[in-house]
């Protein structure tokens, strides 16, 4: 028999899973991300207040331009996502988009995405591209719109509220076998970027493809991520945020927390199920529960961050 407490937490866990499609909310506490149920955060202002002000919300894999059966209205799902973010009692300082803004890298798709993003109350948005954003023949559409922050290199860093953020690109070169690649130039740049930083600085690294190998046969990983991790390990609090696989997978290794966010567009199968990582068709009434966002809060400024995932429904 289940007691009230476990029923409650089970319900919250289900709610949390359901929120998966809308985005993810994170808080990092003592270097470890603690998932926070956004549905709960939205309905219970006191517990939301305890989380502190969300530092940022991660939106991923909006795939504007996708129009197949798995979700014929991805623009509508993104609008719903933006409504959830805009409805948060404390607005996040930043939005981070971890790529696959568009489905086919078409100018009209980027234009629509930017038009939708302009409704966000939080105006500061940082992006990294997904492989769907760099699939135009000339690989210019993403960079002409979002390339300024990185001087068109795709990787850059910035500081906010005592946290050091590093955006990386791992979708332009591929190792044989299909894993993403950071490449020697980018890894050297990271080493220089981290060189004089105190190990007590909380670090948030974000890139589109997972920076750890989740499932190699589908290319769900980054071939030279180990070289990045050896640079990050000395730091006391490292949070690695990715998208790409349209579902939440997370692990903690020492001081490093890895987390992939849900998509706001369509779910994908669990690793290895089916012929490949394509759109997963689910009954219409289940779709919103598989889409979501991630939110990250500073619990004990500046050393603690907390993570939380929220689904669209």
């Amino acid at each position: 028999m289940l007691d009230d407490q476990s029923l409650l937490s089970r319900r919250n866990a289900l709610k949390c899973m359901a929120f998966g499609g809308a985005g993810t909310l994170f808080a990092l506490s003592g270097g470890v991300f603690t998932p926070i149920d956004l549905a709960m955060a939205a309905s219970d202002k006191q517990s939301a207040a305890k989380l502190g002000r969300p530092l940022f919300v991660q939106i991923s894999d909006t795939h504007i331009g996708f129009n197949k059966e798995a979700n014929p209205d991805v623009a509508g799902s993104l609008t719903q996502t933006i409504d959830i973010v805009n409805g948060m009692s404390d607005q996040p300082a930043l939005i981070i988009h971890t790529g696959d803004i568009t489905h086919l890298s078409k100018p009209t798709e980027f234009d629509l995405a930017q038009q939708l993003f302009s409704r966000l109350r939080t105006t500061e948005m940082h992006t990294v591209p997904g492989e769907h954003d760099t699939s135009d023949a000339t690989v210019t559409e993403y960079f002409s719109r979002f390339g300024k922050a990185s001087d068109n290199k795709g990787y850059y860093s910035f500081d906010h509220a005592g946290v050091h953020f590093i955006g990386l690109i791992n979708v332009l070169q591929f190792k044989s076998g299909g894993l993403g690649t950071l490449g020697a130039d980018q890894l050297e740049w990271v080493a220089a970027d981290l060189k004089h930083r105190s190990s007590s600085t909380p670090i948030v690294v974000f890139a589109h493809m997972p920076l750890w190998t989740i499932y190699e046969p589908w290319g769900w990983g980054t071939g030279d991520a180990d070289q990045l991790m050896s640079q990050l390990r000395p730091f006391g609090s490292v949070t690695v945020l990715n998208g790409h696989i349209h579902q939440i997978v997370q692990k903690v290794e020492g001081n490093v927390t890895f987390h992939t966010a849900r998509s706001t567009s369509y779910p994908q199968p669990v690793a290895g199920v089916g012929s490949g990582p394509g759109p997963l068709k689910v009954p219409a009434d289940q779709l919103a529960s598989m889409l979501g966002i991630t939110s990250v809060s500073v619990v004990k400024h500046p050393s603690a961050l907390t993570l939380s995932d929220t689904a669209l429904a």
């Binding site: 197949k68 086919l104 890298s105 078409k106 699939s135 135009d136 023949a137 490949g276 759109p279």
Partner: peptide
């Protein structure tokens, strides 16, 4: 023929398609 877009990119940059939808 997939629901997912694909590209055709030469390893030597000789040719590169844009994203091909279904």
């Amino acid at each position: 023929m997939d629901d997912e877009p694909h590209t055709v990119v030469s390893n030597t940059q000789l040719f590169r398609s844009g994203a091909l939808d279904t």
